[in-house]
Design a protein around this nucleic acid. Sequence first.
DNA 1: GATGGCATCCATCGAAAGTACGAGTCAGCG
DNA 2: CGCTGACTCGTACTTTCGATGGATGCCATC
Lengths: 206, 206
Amino acid sequence: MIRLVIADDHPVVRAGLRALLEQEEGLGVVGEASTPDEAVAVVERENPDVVLMDLQFGTSETGADATRRIRALDAPPYVLVLTNYDTDGDILGAVEAGASGYLLKDAPPHELIAAVRAAAAGESALAPAIANRLLTRMREPQVSLSRREIEVLQRVAAGRSNVQIAEELFVSETTVKSHLVHVFSKLDVSSRTAAVSVGRRLGILR
Amino acid sequence: MIRLVIADDHPVVRAGLRALLEQEEGLGVVGEASTPDEAVAVVERENPDVVLMDLQFGTSETGADATRRIRALDAPPYVLVLTNYDTDGDILGAVEAGASGYLLKDAPPHELIAAVRAAAAGESALAPAIANRLLTRMREPQVSLSRREIEVLQRVAAGRSNVQIAEELFVSETTVKSHLVHVFSKLDVSSRTAAVSVGRRLGILR
DNA sequence: GATGGCATCCATCGAAAGTACGAGTCAGCG
DNA sequence: CGCTGACTCGTACTTTCGATGGATGCCATC
């Protein structure tokens, strides 16, 4: 049986995933987590085959962080990342953190199940709608912001101050400014608000 | 038994709601819909007691529209609106469309069930976290920005500085700041970038 | 006629934001 | 092994924002 752990901060989503997955032969949910920390703990305890990991939690720590920590364990499970938006900037981060698959939350059940089975078999499973975007982004670097720069820009777009962003990312305010300097230069702007508007037009921001 | 219909475009969310609600005594899900149109059709066919209605569908039509149409039927069911964000601008629209309750998707299960029972009894059920915000917004009629304030906010969103905006509008920089102070206060934010992001979510900006 | 919202204007002050250096670690690559 | 790029941090400086607390005239509504 494929043993699963679900990590998502929405009780409704957890219940939905559990319901959809458990009515499938050969799949079993052995644990749930509502925070990144809890996810790591549950995975260590249950030693599952596959983890379904939400990208956005209510906290500052993201699913990508948890994914990185989980993949650093001994004999780690495969991690399937879940997200709401196919434009999420953390997707790249999650993939680099060791996620072996990537799914949209509005994916139909059969896609979900296929992805879980693929992941359990060690294969890569990207939602079709995503694979394209990811690949095109890979090969056409365009205005390629680094992962960190995108992360900072997203938080700027959410209205956070430099100090707040620094705290959320556990770096100094100087570092945040430094990232922003690069973002401004790459986007050819000179203020955060302009950067947000250009970033949105270029599809870097949702 | 309280007969329920679930309308949400996410299969996972539908399954989660169904799972959480059906393990409760006296509740039964008699239909699901993945689009606003389908929701109206299913409600007409099943004649349920309560409808759980998502606010955002993938389409241009919103849950508020469907709510309005459902409440216009003969002997309509009560409608509970579901949304991700407590700042969603359509909330007011949904309430005005006849929704009798309002829930965040990350609400704990007991809150969800309590809201369904309250709705079935014809009572109003607002997520506690929301009720306040909604009420204050009701008595302080929405977020109506003046024409001038919107003009300024739009230019802020385009990345202009206060000085630039002042020149464009043929007023002094202080005047621009003054408008922005009002905008900030109305939108309950304290920076231009946050104002832009809230303004966008509320539909004030493109 | 009063009240209140809107648009306009003003000054000051501290807090953010942005600029401009320099500089270190680390991973990956040719 | 040296190079490059991403990421990190520091210090010092200038500019822009935002908060505060006023002021005026206009106009609609009560």
